[in-house]
């Protein structure tokens, strides 16, 4: 990879109380890339994202974003520096409308007019959201909520987008659609760090991938190589020999 390194996570250890959820994770994301994190339940994927976005600061190790150390930066300032996220479980504001949720995504921005343009862009990516824009987010279907969560993250106009299991709980046809949109967002220039249970689809759109196991990086390779890796095929793609 000759391209510029956007995010560099180096040897982070993150705890929940006394529980060490991450035991020295290192990874990087380069300009223009989709990088995927896969691994079984409880491997530490969500915790890795929460370390990056400032909700759980690591006790050791460092996180550098665009050359700035953000290891200890509070979550609300990290968004301003350009990292936004569609979190696990979507975490929409249930009693706000779709439009209000999207507006919240742009909360820290000051450029009103461009915010409006971005809202239109989100509506063109997800026409379904445009139809539902006055509906309370808490009453959307699972798929619509996922679209709203991704749209809200885009409203921050991120320089790095974190997605935590965007395909969770969606019908196969919607999963395809979400992945197509992830690709489209990336083609428009936003690097993405993608956490997925659906390893096959994730490795398919990603350029590189990391396999996490109980808080450590077990494998790191090009996505195509991981797709061919026998261990990955067995554990995460559900193949038997």
């Amino acid at each position: 990879m000759a391209s510029e390194r956007v995010l560099y996570v180096e040897g982070i250890h993150t705890f929940y109380g006394a529980i060490e959820a991450l035991k020295g994770i290192s990874l990087e994301v380069h300009q223009g890339e989709i990088v995927t994190l896969i691994g079984s339940n409880g491997a530490g994927k969500t915790t890795t994202l929460r370390s990056i976005n400032g909700l759980n600061h690591p006790r050791r190790g460092s996180i550098v974003f665009e050359g700035n150390d953000i290891t200890r930066t509070p979550a609300h300032e990290i968004v301003k520096s350009g990292i936004s996220q569609s979190p696990e479980g979507r975490k929409l504001f249930p009693r706000m409308t779709v439009s209000e949720n999207l507006e919240m995504g742009a909360f820290q921005r000051t450029d009103r007019l461009e915010t409006k343009d971005d809202m239109d862009r989100v509506f063109s990516l997800f026409p379904r959201l445009a139809e539902r824009k006055s509906q309370k987010a808490g009453t959307l279907s699972g798929g619509e909520q996922q679209m709203c969560a991704i749209g809200r993250a885009l409203m921050a106009r991120p320089k790095l987008l974190l997605l935590d299991e965007p395909s969770m709980g969606l019908a196969p046809i919607l999963v395809e659609r979400i992945f197509a949109i992830i690709k489209e967002i990336n083609d428009q220039g936003t690097p993405i760090l993608l956490v997925e249970q659906n390893a096959m689809m994730a490795l398919d759109v990603a350029s590189r991938g990391y396999v996490l196991e109980t808080g450590t990086v077990a494998l790191a390779d090009d996505a195509k190589a991981l797709l061919r890796n026998e261990q990955v095929r067995k554990t995460y793609l559900g193949e038997t020999d």
């Binding site: 979550a75 609300h76 504001f93 995504g105 909360f107």
Partner: peptide
């Protein structure tokens, strides 16, 4: 107001509010 929106967002989901850039 902005402060009011921050209050409503924080009331509904603190983690999400922080992710939006709200100082919870």
């Amino acid at each position: 107001t902005r402060a009011g929106k921050a209050m409503r967002a924080t009331a509904q989901d603190k983690d999400a509010a922080a992710m939006m850039g709200i100082d919870v």
